[in-house]
Amino acid sequence: MVESKAARLIGAELVVINVGLDIFYQSMVRQKVRVAQVSMPAGPGLEKRLSAALDKIL
């Protein structure tokens, strides 16, 4: 069953989170799509811990 959020995607303005290759982020920018780039050099688990640690510091 993919109705609901999947069905609502059709016809909607695309708002994209790009996780990984910068080249796909750049292609979204080129197509004037609202996009955020997530760079994850380490595993997602570690990222979460790093993010939490940074939140405390900042």
Binding site: R8, A12, L14, V15, V16, I17, R34, V38, P44
Partner: peptide, 18 residues
């Protein structure tokens, strides 16, 4: 951003991830 959660907090209305 350097984490998915942070990106989601900052980009409102995201409906697709690549």
């Amino acid at each position: 951003y350097f984490g998915i959660a942070t990106a989601l907090e900052n980009l409102h209305g995201a409906n697709l991830a690549v």
